[in-house]
């Protein structure tokens, strides 16, 4: 029964993929129309890569900070971190980018759409990551904390030697998904005119009216950014693996 189900699922998925691929490939494309804009795509792709790479590091730092706030023994950091996470997760990224760049940044005299974009993305993704990290930390059984306490570890040593190494393995798959989202979410920075990959595709489309030809490169461009993250995550999962 299992084998039959496996074959059935493989056939259905394979057929669907081939069908969609054939539809996409068999379309009559006008690649000549977008050829002069090759440079725009390349510069947009590099911008997306740069924004995503910096925001990825920023989101890990903000995520870790929010996690430690949420797990703090003190009430004030707990409430502040929790409120921040709820607010960020419960509101659209598009609005956050607009408020960040057009309201908050001018109020503090900061005029860098690139910088504001990265900061807002880091906060947005950091809020999601903090929930993933918190889940990872809280999933470590109480017996591990007790054992660490019994051998005389301080709280900091318990996190460093016991909790974090075990939690990393547990949060990797979800974190990799969040990193891929971050890369794709960077496309929303078009609202503050950051010339990233999607913004360039929009401009090419506006100039050439070749919609598919302008947007199809995004599939490949984003995939070569997100796929390595998936591969890296799987290799790290193996490295941190242990039997229960």
């Amino acid at each position: 029964m299992k084998t039959f189900l496996g074959i059935f699922v493989s056939v259905v998925l394979g057929a669907t993929f081939c069908f969609v691929f054939w539809i996409v490939v068999s379309h009559d494309y006008q690649w000549d129309a977008i050829a002069p804009y090759k440079g725009n795509f390349i510069s947009g792709w590099w911008t997306t890569l740069l924004i995503s790479a910096i925001a990825l590091v920023g989101s890990i730092l903000i995520g870790a900070l929010l996690t430690s706030g949420q797990l703090s023994p003190w009430k004030v950091p707990r409430i502040l971190s929790r409120s921040f996470v709820e607010l960020i997760r419960g509101t659209p990224l598009l609005t956050q980018i607009l408020i960040g760049y057009y309201l908050v940044a001018p109020a503090i005299g900061w005029d860098s759409r690139f910088g504001v974009g990265i900061l807002v993305l880091s906060c947005f993704s950091g809020a999601y990551l903090s929930e993933i990290f918190r889940g990872g930390v809280e999933s470590i059984p109480s017996s591990q904390w007790l054992s660490a306490k019994a051998i005389g570890f301080t709280d900091a040593q318990t996190y460093r030697f016991v909790v974090i190494p075990q939690a990393i393995r547990r949060v990797l798959p979800a974190s990799a998904g969040q990193f891929a989202n971050l890369i794709k979410d960077s496309s929303l920075l078009f609202v503050i005119s950051v010339h990233e990959f999607t913004m360039q595709a929009r401009e090419v489309n506006a100039n050439t009216y070749a919609t598919f030809e302008a947007y199809l490169p995004l599939i490949f461009g984003y995939f070569i950014l997100t796929f390595p993250i998936s591969l890296l995550s799987r290799s790290l999962e193996k490295r941190f693996a242990y039997e229960h």
Binding site: S143, Q144, S147, A150, F161, V162, P165, Q166, R169, F240
Partner: peptide, 8 residues
């Protein structure tokens, strides 16, 4: 009772 070794 349940050993509580560090599994990693």
């Amino acid at each position: 009772q349940s050993f509580n070794l560090f599994p990693h």
